[in-house]
Structure formats: C-alpha cells, structure tokens
C-alpha cells in the first residue's frame, strides 16, 4: 500500500512572504494558472542555471547570479553580487504572528552580544560598568585560528560579562550584556 502525504491543494493559490531583516516584505503569489505575482503585480520571474554552475534569477530584463549561503528551517541567506541578504520565508499566518510579536515585544533595555561563531575568548577588553560606544571592540574571539574583534552593537554601559579569558564558547552564546 502506498499512501500519499497530505498535499497542498495544487489548484488553489499559494502565497509566500519573504521577510527581510529590515522587515521589508516581498510577497510571492503562485497562482493556480502557474503565473507568479510579485508584490501583487503579475511578473515574469524565473530561475535559470548555466553550464558553469552559476544560478541566476531572471526578472524584468535583469539576470543576476544568486548563491545560497545558508538555510536553516525557514531562514535563508542568499548571496547576490557579493552582498548577502537574509530572509525568513513566511506563510500568511506566520507573517501575521511575526508582525504581532514585533509590535508587542517589550523593547529590551539590555543588548546581548552573542558569539557569531564558536571559538575561544582571547581577551576581554572591557570591564563591568564601563561605558562603550557602538562599534567599539569589546572582546577578541579566536575562531578558525583567526582573532576576531567582537564589536559593541550599541552604545551603553556594560551590565554583565558572562565569559572569561580562555573560555570556549559556542555559537550564539551570550558573551556580554550591555545596558542601553
């Protein structure tokens, strides 16, 4: 016996929303008649590949090479002409939820500096209660045999330092918290 898994009804329209990090939204409506509407406008948009292994998106007389950098669940990072763009792909329901959560999330007063990659703390350049300004180096993380300066993303006061010199950290660990 072979059973078919639940399938989206092919005959109906399917809407997807790609949400950029800057909250800019791109709406793609895949119609039952196989046409695509981009931001509610019917468009001729498609993906092509060439023999060299480059993938292109073709849209309104433009053809740009695209490259998938990373994907995880519904989060994507796509590279176009050397600039990477991050999106989360949403359904109309999940988009509504996201918009709602953004509105109601209490603006946190503390900013967490998280480890961008796993590695070892080489040096902590700040102490609790010192003031830092945006873009200031606050610690040095060694990863892939290279020392990376981790910069403060905000201007504020160091609230807590969760790591010490020579600690090993995982990706996304909270390293330092800054009070805005």
């Amino acid at each position: 016996m072979i059973l078919k898994i639940k399938n989206k009804d092919k005959k109906s329209d399917n809407k997807y929303i790609a949400l950029g990090l800057d909250k800019k939204k791109y709406e793609f409506l895949f119609k039952a008649d196989n046409t695509v509407a981009v931001n509610k406008k019917k468009s001729d948009i498609r993906i092509e590949e060439d023999d060299d292994g480059f993938t292109y998106v073709v849209w309104e007389s433009r053809r740009v090479p695209v490259e998938l950098v990373e994907k995880n669940q519904n989060r994507y990072e796509v590279l176009v002409n050397g600039i990477s763009y991050k999106f989360s792909i949403e359904s109309p329901i999940s988009y509504k939820r996201k918009k709602f959560l953004d509105k109601t999330q209490i603006q946190s007063k503390t900013e967490s500096i998280i480890a961008p990659m796993p590695g070892k703390i080489i040096d902590v350049l700040v102490e609790p209660n010192t003031h830092v300004s945006q873009g200031e180096a606050i610690l040095i993380l060694e990863a892939m045999k290279m020392q990376n300066e981790i910069l403060s993303t905000v201007t504020g006061k160091i609230k807590s330092i969760n790591i010490r010199k020579d600690d090993n950290v995982m990706k996304d660990d909270v390293l330092i918290e800054i009070e805005k």
């Binding site: 791109y26 793609f28 981009v38 849209w59 998938l68 590279l79 176009v80 002409n81 763009y85 999106f87």
Partner: peptide, 11 residues
Amino acid sequence: DEKLMAAFFAT
C-alpha cells in the same frame, strides 16, 4: 531589485 530577486530565490 537584487534583493527582491534574492527573496524570490529563497522562497
């Protein structure tokens, strides 16, 4: 425009 095309590719 490139961003839109990237969004399409991701979708």
